[in-house]
């Protein structure tokens, strides 16, 4: 980090209004600067941006309908019309790859936001108020964490008649909020003991103000980092469930159910172009998000906090 040149105190007349042409950066701005200096994180950000663009502009990148099946041309090898060939129902693999990224990103992002909301509220209440409320919320997280995720998810999905993205996101969110709750609670507990919180109380600030103006800005670092990393793991969860056939049902394309095509040895061996691209898609997306998350972690690390 570039250190600003110190001004010799002797040369400055204290009574004179000295105008120093230097921008004063808030801790958040400093964190953003640190983040932008992290090369790996920037690579992750660029890759992630490209993937988002691919998802958004999918209709412009291919003229094939991902859900249009053509039983006359199944399991075709790549041609100029079908760049990555077709799947077992004769649907175009390339357009399925592009449209499938939408599902992965939407599920990952909305599950993350949903989890964030639940985790933030429960964690904030538990960490701020402590005592009995804290105890109840913590035992609840223990309960949810004790339930095996896969069994719970499969049961709920099995009970549902039709799996929509909304239901899918809810299932992921209600099974993964405890992790975030604990992180938020832990951060709040340590903040609660800090003198500046006592100071806020001493000036008569209300609980709501203390939470929003003093706790959240100071807890935002770990929360953002964990939410980002959580999004990556939610994309994996979505793919995994789709792979075993409990995800978003066909014909909606997802990377997970594209890979599940490779369950047949024939496709696995003779049509690598059908399952390698979606596999790579998951890998690259998750890797990019994790790089971003690691970059954020370094940027928000209090030990490098500009002091």
């Amino acid at each position: 980090m570039v250190q600003p040149t110190p001004i010799d105190p002797m040369s400055v007349d204290p009574n004179e209004e000295v105008v120093i042409d230097r921008k004063h950066r808030s801790p958040l701005q400093l964190a953003i600067r640190r983040f932008l200096k992290n090369k790996l994180a920037i690579v992750g950000l660029i890759v992630f941006f490209i993937i988002i663009c691919m998802a958004i502009f999918a209709p412009f990148l291919t003229d094939q309908d991902p859900e249009q099946h053509d039983l006359l041309s199944i399991e075709q090898s790549p041609t100029s019309e079908h760049i990555l060939g077709t799947d077992g129902s004769g649907r175009d693999n390339f357009s399925r790859l592009l449209y499938g990224s939408r599902i992965s990103l939407i599920v990952g992002f909305s599950a993350m936001v949903f989890t964030l909301v639940i985790g933030l509220i429960t964690g904030a209440i538990a960490g701020y108020y402590g005592g009995i409320v804290d105890n109840i919320i913590m035992r609840l997280t223990d309960l949810v964490l004790a339930l095996p995720f896969l069994v719970l998810a499969l049961t709920i999905i099995a009970l549902m008649e039709k799996i929509t993205i909304g239901i899918f996101v809810t299932i992921i969110a209600i099974t993964s909020w405890p992790t975030l709750t604990r992180i938020v609670r832990g951060t709040f507990l340590s903040l609660r003991e800090q003198e500046f919180v006592l100071g806020a109380r001493a000036i008569g600030a209300s609980d709501t103000r203390i939470i929003f103006k003093h706790f959240i800005p100071n807890a935002i670092g770990p929360i953002i980092v964990n939410a980002t990393l959580m999004m990556a793991s939610m994309i994996i969860i979505e793919s995994a469930l789709s792979f075993i056939g409990f995800g978003i049902p066909q014909p909606t394309p997802t990377w997970g159910n594209m890979i599940s095509e490779a369950q047949s040895i024939r496709i696995l061996r003779y049509h690598p172009e059908a399952w390698i691209p979606p596999g790579l898609g998951i890998l690259v997306t998750v890797l990019a998000i994790n790089f971003i998350g690691d970059g954020l972690r370094d940027a928000f690390d209090p030990k490098s906090d500009g002091r």
């Binding site: 800090q194 003198e195 100071g199």
Partner: peptide, 28 residues
């Protein structure tokens, strides 16, 4: 009002000096 012992722990590092000094007025 109160002035605390540790000037490093008693100011919220995410707020500018202007915000810090104005806060009691807003709260009240």
């Amino acid at each position: 009002q109160i002035v605390f012992q540790d000037p490093f722990a008693s100011l919220n590092s995410k707020m500018s000096v202007g915000q810090l000094v104005e806060e009691p007025l807003i709260v009240q």
